[in-house]
Design a protein around this nucleic acid. Structure first.
Length: 662
DNA sequence: TTAGGGTTAG
């Protein structure tokens, strides 16, 4: 929080007193279950926490001797180079809350290993409380979620496992590590086990939805549960909900929540205004943003760095670049532009509307001023250069970035990778991939997309294929255009079954795909003689395939498809509304005649035809008669007479030019 | 005596 303005602090003290809590969350102290003090032996009377803590002794009284002894023991343990042995020596005289103080201090100092050792010691000696679990999970979870979960799962006592503080702590750790889904699942389990969630529990989970795409609806489901649990929204929760609205572009809903919180008597603070302002950035609604800034100032709130930066975002999105530059100058003189963020926003906004030169000038200006950068600005500029097709320059800047910044995140790696791919710098592409591997950065959707596009461009189609399989196995959705392009190229290099694999991944990812793709894969499969696969495609999508393609498939199948499926294929083609031509019948029949053991199939076909308005032509008829001894002369004569009757009573099917299979 | 909120690249 920025330094408060004195007048305002007097008016709204709760805004500035970080220790004050709204009444709804001033919780009663949970009584520490004696059951969790596992080794409740001789020391059990000393381990139950008393409300007075070592850190906040009553100032009106002189410190007791015991307090002073404990206090010096605490600092001795904390400062000891071998803290475990000090603990062995002094720990017996320390209360649980004293040990908790040490534990938290270890956490703050980042001494995670010591913290875990202390936690183990406390467990072994039965000096453990709800606060111990809660703090331990918080600090461990910040670095190591699975260890935190392990600690949570190891809690022996069922009622402790549903203690609201401990539950909030582990849920928060999951949310902060981007594991919102797991956190919701665990929350549901906790409720089934008897957890009574409070306002903090809900707020913790809600905060997870801020950065989630389309998180608004799910967040509102959670908000809908509140009355059922007798929980009222507090000022903090309004802040969270407003942030969710803002990140989903729901400015009207945000306005509604601000209204609602005012009606309920909550005062609005800088967080609420910031979130509402951010919701205006979606559409770049600078008019509403200006009105909001005025309203905020009129209630005595002074815009802070975040607020000003958010306002800049609104102006940029609204295309007010002159005002954006003025505001950036204001940020500079207020000391709010000491890092690259506002410059990045402006550069990105300019480049996205095609003002590359103006973006470049901000970039150079920023560098000239010596603004602290972690590489974001370079990354944005690389994207900007790629967007304007200045690939050589983008590549150069990417190389500069690699030498200047040791640490880069996935987005920066992707940006550089993209620049190298566009510039056709194979060696650098490989170097980036190696770098990702070394830094244990797992590729995301964009990484795969960039690489596949590049491999296709470089005609490394099988590599592109492998990368696409990899992408699919990592759970990323495949983009249809890219798949379509790869399918085309795989077909061209006669990798027909690979093409079909990609088609199937797309087909079975539960969505409608472009109808051209069925046609495209069908041609590939026919060419690769994968006729059984082609049959599956036709069976499922016949209505979306053109008549000439169906015909091509039909003929190909008649010539070399599995003979046992010939009749099925003809039925499917006919059932789709396709008119089967004489040539297909001719080929099918001559295949049957050459394989007399398939005589049942021939008879079935001949019997089926008249009912659908098909008859054999005279040359086929003669051919059959000539071989009728193989099938039973009488039966053949009987069936062919039906064909004869049909041909006289129905419009005769126009015969195609003769086509003999060979 | 422990848990919760806002801004940036793609």
């Amino acid at each position: 929080m920025e330094t408060p303005v004195l007048g305002l602090e007097l008016r709204c003290p709760h805004l500035f007193n970080t220790n004050s809590r709204p009444s709804s969350s001033s919780l009663s102290i949970p009584s520490v279950s004696l059951r969790i003090i596992t080794a409740a032996t001789a020391t059990s009377s000393t381990v139950v926490e008393s409300p007075a803590t070592v850190t906040e002794p009553s100032r009106s009284k002189r410190h007791s001797k015991s307090y002073l002894t404990r206090k010096s023991a605490i600092s001795e343990v904390e400062r000891s180079s071998d803290f475990l042995s000090s603990l062995q020596r002094l720990g017996g005289g320390l209360k649980v809350q004293d040990l908790n103080v040490i534990l938290r201090n270890f956490g703050i100092a980042g001494r995670l290993q010591d913290l875990i050792q202390l936690f183990d010691w406390m467990q072994q000696h039965g000096k453990i409380s709800v606060s111990t679990y809660s703090s331990c999970i918080k600090f461990v979870g910040a670095k190591n979620v699975s260890k935190a979960l392990e600690i949570y799962q190891s809690i022996p006592d069922e009622s402790t496992k549903i203690n609201v503080f401990i539950c909030n702590s582990i849920l928060s750790c999951l949310v902060k590590n981007g594991k919102l889904d797991s956190s919701i699942k665990l929350f549901d389990q906790m409720k089934r086990d008897g957890l009574k969630p409070d306002v903090v529990t809900y707020n913790t989970l809600l905060a997870g939805f801020i950065k989630v795409k389309n998180g608004y609806t799910k967040a509102m489901e959670l908000v809908g549960e509140l009355p059922h649990n007798g929980i009222q929204m507090d000022s903090v929760m309004y802040g969270t909900v407003l942030a969710i609205c803002a990140s989903n572009g729901r400015c009207e809903e945000a306005e509604g929540f601000i209204q609602q919180m005012k009606v309920e008597g909550h005062s609005t603070n800088i967080y609420h205004y910031s979130a509402l302002l951010n919701s205006y950035s979606w559409k770049g609604d600078y008019k509403k943003a200006d009105e909001l800034m005025n309203e905020m100032k009129s209630v005595g709130l002074v815009p802070n760095k975040v607020m000003m930066t958010t306002l800049l975002k609104v102006y940029i999105k609204g295309g007010l670049f002159d005002r954006s530059r003025e505001l950036l100058a204001e940020l500079e003189s207020a000391g709010y532009a000491e890092n690259e963020m506002p410059y990045c926003m402006l550069m990105d906004g300019l480049s996205k509307v095609g003002k590359l030169e103006e973006a470049r000038s901000i970039f150079e200006d920023m560098k000239a001023k010596g603004v602290k950068s972690d590489g974001f600005a370079n990354s944005i500029m690389i994207s900007a250069l790629c967007r304007s097709k200045h690939f050589e320059e983008a590549k150069q800047l990417a190389m500069d970035s690699e030498t200047t910044y040791e640490k880069c995140d996935l987005v920066m790696l992707n940006t550089m990778l993209c620049a190298y791919c566009r510039a056709g710098e194979m060696e650098s592409v490989m170097r980036m991939m190696k770098k990702m591997d070394e830094q244990a950065v797992s590729p995301d959707y964009n990484t795969f997309h960039i690489l596949i596009k590049y491999f296709i461009k470089e005609k490394l189609h099988l590599l592109a294929y492998q990368t696409m399989l990899d992408m699919h196995s990592k759970g990323h959705r495949l983009e249809e255009d890219l798949c379509s392009s790869l399918i085309y190229h795989l077909g061209k290099i006669r990798s027909h079954s690979e093409a079909f694999t990609i088609y199937n991944i797309l087909r079975y990812s539960k969505r409608t795909i472009c109808r051209d793709l069925h046609e495209k894969i069908l041609h590939t499969l026919i060419q690769g003689k994968l006729l059984k696969d082609a049959y599956v495609v036709v069976k499922d999508n016949a209505k979306m395939i053109s008549q000439p393609t169906l015909k091509r498939f039909g003929r190909a199948f008649m010539i070399s498809g599995n003979i046992n499926l010939v009749n099925d294929v003809l039925k499917v083609l006919h059932g789709s509304g396709h008119k089967i031509d004489q040539v297909q019948f001719e080929i099918a029949i001559s295949r049957y005649i050459s394989q007399p053991d398939k005589k049942e199939l021939l008879l079935q076909l001949l019997q089926w035809m008249p009912g659908q308005g098909y008859v054999v032509d005279s040359s086929t008829r003669n051919f059959i008669l000539k071989n009728s001894h193989l099938f039973g002369r009488l039966l053949i004569a009987e069936i062919l007479s039906k064909h004869h009757i049909t041909s006289r009573t129905t419009v005769k099917y126009r015969s195609e030019p003769k086509f003999r299979s060979k």
